[in-house]
Design a binder for these strands. Sequence first.
DNA 1: TGTGAATCATTCATATATTAACTAATTAGA
DNA 2: TCTAATTAGTTAATATATGAATGATTCACA
Lengths: 145, 145
Amino acid sequence: MPKFLDSLPMILSRSLDRVMPSYRRLFQANDLTDQQWRVLRALWEKQHLTSAQISQITLLPPPSLVGILDRLEKKNLIGRLRSTEDRRHVHIIPTQKGRALMEHMMPMVDRIHDDFMQRVTAAEWAEFNRILEKLSEPTEKRNLA
Amino acid sequence: MPKFLDSLPMILSRSLDRVMPSYRRLFQANDLTDQQWRVLRALWEKQHLTSAQISQITLLPPPSLVGILDRLEKKNLIGRLRSTEDRRHVHIIPTQKGRALMEHMMPMVDRIHDDFMQRVTAAEWAEFNRILEKLSEPTEKRNLA
DNA sequence: TGTGAATCATTCATATATTAACTAATTAGA
DNA sequence: TCTAATTAGTTAATATATGAATGATTCACA
C-alpha cells in the first residue's frame, strides 16, 4: 500500500523544498533566482558555452532559458555572441561583472554544500547516489543492460 | 572540489526530471497536470480537506493552489465549500466525477510506483530514505538533537 | 471586552515550466 | 544539386512557483 507521501516524486520534491532555502537566501542576497545562479554556475566551470550546452548542464528547458538569459543579459552579467561558423549557435560568455559575482558567491555556495555533506559519511553519500541512480536511471539505458 | 552536477539540488532535480515523465504520460492521457493530480491524490486518502491541509500534504504553495483548485473546479472534479464553524476555512471535496477519475487512475499510478520500487531492494529503499532524511532534515529539528 | 496578533484564503507581480509551433541555418541523401 | 530532414534558438499559450501584500475571520489575553 504505497502512501502518497512516500512516493518517489513526493520524497524528492520534499527534500528539494527543504534543501533549497539554504541556498536561496544567498541567491536573493545577490539578487539572483535559483535558475539564474545555475547558469552562472555552469559558466564557472567553462566560460564558453552555447545555449544548448547550458540547457543540458543546468537542466533548464530551452524555452525557459531564453528568458533567464535575457534577464542575466539585462543585468550585464552575461553576453550573447552568435557563432560565425554555425550561425545557429549562440555562445554565452560571462561579463566582467558576471565573473566578479561568481567569484564572490562560489565560496559561500561551496560552504553550504559542505554543510550538507557533513550530515552524512562519505560512504553514505556514495550509497545514496548509487541507489538514487538505480531508482531514476533512464529507461533506455536500463534496456541495454 | 564539489562539482556543480553533484550538488544536492542538481542531483535531486535530475532524478525528478527522469522520474516524472513516466507519471506525466498517464496524467496527460487523463487531461491533468502533475499538480492537479497531486490534489486529487491527497483527496484519495481523505475526502474532506481544507485548502491549507492540501497545501501541506501536496507541498503546493497556497498561491499556486488557488489556481489549481480553480481549474479542478472548472473541470467539475472538485467542489469548494466554505466552513460554517470557521468561515476562514474552505473545504475541498471531490465530485462524483472526481472520485470516478481517481478510481480509474489510482491502479495505474500504483503500478508506476511499483515499477520504480522493483529497481531496488527493500533494504536499499529503506537505506535511501534514511540517508535522504539525514541530508534534508529541517534545520530546526536538527538543533533539537 | 476590546484590541492587537495570528490565521486562512486570496490577489498581485514577476519568474519559470511545459508543450507546440516556428524561423533560420545546416546537413543528409536521392 | 536540390530537396527533405535536422538542429539551435526562439515565440506563444497556458500552468505553476515565489514573495509580498490584502481582506475577512478568529484568537489570545491584558
